[in-house]
């Protein structure tokens, strides 16, 4: 493993490393700590220019209380109801497309793969009007379903790239061996390939969860109200007509950032294994 495991170093190094870690983290997270400080300031501090000094009063309970008592929980629930189905849908679809493109050799294989990649590179803002009209025609405007369907479709591009490369890296002999046994192709997918893809699935879940959780653009294009909008749109709803409520936005965004971090923390081990293999061509 690289670098040299710290356990094999001298005692001083080990202690030094352990001490350095929290300091490095604090430095790295300094902007985040600033957000945390903003989130406990009173509104007036932003009018007097007191961004970095000691808050003129500590408003932790007021601010977070206000956030929790707003429509925030509703928005967070919406976020989950949008993010989780998208995650499942996009990962499921791309397991299939990845399998098809990674295992089989047929005419147009590369072409189709390239199409998925190209779609991934487009400036997605330009899809707005056509996608809005499409969603409308299907009667899904301002519904979570409409948002989920689009996200699944769009994320399939990135996920396919990821899954296809991952499957490429699997030992092909396993599939050959299964074929020799006369096992049906879909069974090979289900019983041979899919179990091997678990790390990749975990990794993609974390990434997709993060992407979708943080989506703001499509949330405001395809939905309008509390009944369907995710938390990213909810955060800015604290803003007044002419006044940004920085303290509430800070508090709200910290709360909103927790789910992806927790997911990452929980899936970390699988996540890391997944990206590793996937990256190998």
């Amino acid at each position: 493993m690289f670098p040299k495991p710290i356990e094999k170093s001298s005692r001083q190094w080990q202690i030094g490393y352990q001490v350095l870690l929290p300091f490095a983290m604090l430095l790295w997270l300094a902007p985040l700590i600033a957000v945390a400080l903003f989130s406990i300031r009173p509104d007036a501090d932003f009018s007097t220019g007191n961004y970095w000094g000691i808050p003129s009063s500590f408003e932790f309970f007021t601010n977070y209380g206000q956030v929790i008592n707003s429509a925030m929980p509703r928005y967070i629930l919406n976020s989950f109801m949008i993010t989780l189905p998208t995650m499942v849908g996009a990962v499921a679809l791309s397991c299939m497309t990845g399998f098809a493109l990674g295992v089989y050799k047929f005419r147009g294989n590369l072409l189709i793969f390239f199409m998925f990649i190209a779609g991934n590179f487009i400036p997605f803002q330009i899809l707005m009007v056509p996608v809005r009209d499409l969603t409308l025609d299907m009667g899904l405007y301002n519904t979570k379903t409409g948002l989920v369907l689009f996200h699944i479709a769009f994320q399939t591009g990135f996920c396919t790239l990821f899954m296809r490369n991952f499957i490429r890296a699997l030992p092909f002999e396993l599939i050959e061996a299964a074929r020799v046994e006369g096992i049906a192709e879909w069974r090979i997918f289900w019983y041979v390939v899919l179990p091997l893809m678990r790390p990749a699935i975990a990794a993609l879940c974390v990434l997709i969860f993060t992407f979708i959780w943080n989506d703001y653009f499509w949330a405001i294009v395809l939905t309008t109200g509390e009944n369907a909008q995710p938390v990213t749109a909810g955060i800015t709803s604290f803003n007044a007509q002419f006044r940004a409520m920085y303290h509430l936005m800070s508090a709200g965004s910290l709360i909103a950032a927790l789910p992806p971090v927790i997911i990452f923390f929980l899936l970390q081990r699988h996540f890391i294994a997944g990206l590793t293999l996937g990256a190998v061509k």
């Binding site: 405001i220 007044a240 007509q241």
Partner: peptide, 13 residues
């Protein structure tokens, strides 16, 4: 609807 988002959304809704 959030005031800023509204400026985009009015075109849609």
């Amino acid at each position: 609807i959030d005031r800023e988002a509204y400026k985009t959304q009015i075109r849609n809704f």
